[in-house]
C-alpha cells in the first residue's frame, strides 16, 4: 500500500462515503443515522452547537472511537472503497492514511524533530524520502517552518499554543495522509495562529481531503467548500458553503448560522 506523499491531481470521485452512521451509548443516541460524502480535494466543514455529535462523528472516521468500548457504532463507512468497519481491517494501517488534529494541542514531551518523526518510526520501514526533507515540507505546509527551523531539537513543549497546534498539524502530515480530520483546531488560539492554520488548510486541499469540525460559524464560511450542519445527532442540511450561509433550505440551519442559537 504505497502512500505517495505528492499525490497527483485528486479525482473528483468521492473520497469517503458515510452511510447511516449511528452511535449509541447505552440507550442514548449520539448520532442518528448520518449519511454524507466527502469529495476528494475539498474542505468539508462540520458545524453545529456543542453536543451535536460532531467530535463523535469525526472519531468514527479513523476509528478512534474504538477507544471507547461503551459506544455502539453501526453503519457503513467507505474510504476509497475500503469498508472501514469491515472484518479484518488493520486499524493502525487505516489510521496512517488519515491524519488528525485534536482540539487541545497534544505535542509529545520530546523535541520538535522527534515529534515529527514519530509517525515515521511508527511506519517502521524506511518511508520514501529522507526525514529532513519531509520535516521541512510538513512544517512549511503547516506554516511553521520559519519559526522553528533553527531549533528543531528544542522541546516541543516550549512552543506557544498556536505553534504547538501547527506542530501537531505538521506531525499529522508527515506520513502523507489522504484525509485530514481537524476537531475544532483553533479553539483557544490567537487570531494570527488561527489565520495561519486556515491558510495551511487552503494550501493542503489540492492534495488532501479535509473534514473540519468547527464551533466557529464564520470560520466555516471562510474556509470550506461545503458545509454540513449537525444538530443533536442529526444531519440537518449539507451543501455548498456559499448556499448554506446565504440561502439555507432548513429553518434550523438558518437560525444557527445567523446566530439565533448556538
Amino acid at each position: 500500500m504505497g502512500i505517495s506523499y505528492d499525490a497527483s491531481v485528486p479525482s473528483p470521485a468521492d473520497k469517503l462515503v458515510v452511510e447511516r452512521l449511528r452511535v449509541r451509548k447505552g440507550k442514548n443516541a449520539i448520532l442518528n443515522g448520518v449519511s454524507l460524502t466527502v469529495r476528494g480535494g475539498e474542505i468539508l466543514a462540520l458545524i453545529g452547537p456543542a453536543g451535536s455529535g460532531k467530535t463523535t462523528f469525526l472519531r468514527c472516521l479513523n476509528r478512534l472511537i474504538d477507544l471507547e468500548p461503551e459506544l455502539a457504532v453501526e453503519g457503513r463507512l467507505r474510504l476509497d472503497g475500503l469498508d472501514v468497519y469491515g472484518e479484518g481491517v488493520d486499524v493502525p494501517s487505516l489510521r496512517r492514511r488519515i491524519g488528525m488534529v485534536f482540539a487541545v494541542p497534544n505535542p509529545l514531551p520530546m523535541s520538535i524533530r522527534d515529534n515529527l518523526t514519530l509517525g515515521l518510526r511508527i511506519l517502521g520501514a524506511a518511508a520514501a524520502g529522507p526525514p529532513s526533507e519531509r520535516i521541512e515540507r510538513s512544517l512549511k505546509a503547516a506554516y511553521l517552518w520559519d519559526e522553528v527551523k533553527d531549533r528543531l531539537d528544542d522541546s516541543a513543549l516550549k512552543l506557544s499554543g498556536g505553534q504547538q497546534q501547527r506542530l501537531c498539524l505538521a506531525r499529522s502530515l508527515m506520513a502523507g495522509p489522504e484525509l485530514l480530520l481537524l476537531d475544532e483546531p483553533c479553539s483557544g488560539l490567537d487570531p494570527i495562529s488561527t489565520a495561519k492554520i486556515e491558510e495551511a488548510l487552503q494550501g493542503l486541499k489540492s492534495r488532501i481531503s479535509v473534514v473540519l469540525v468547527t464551533n466557529n460559524v464564520k470560520q466555516a464560511s471562510r474556509c470550506s467548500d461545503r458545509t454540513a450542519f449537525l444538530l443533536m445527532g442529526d444531519l440537518v442540511e449539507m451543501g455548498e458553503t456559499g448556499l448554506i450561509f446565504t440561502n439555507p433550505q432548513n429553518r434550523r440551519t438558518a437560525d444557527y448560522v445567523s446566530g439565533r442559537f448556538g
Partner: peptide
C-alpha cells in the same frame, strides 16, 4: 491526549 495522538498516527 498523548495516547490519542499516537493512536491517530497509526500506532499499534
Amino acid at each position: 491526549g498523548h495516547r490519542e495522538a499516537a493512536y491517530a498516527l497509526g500506532a499499534t
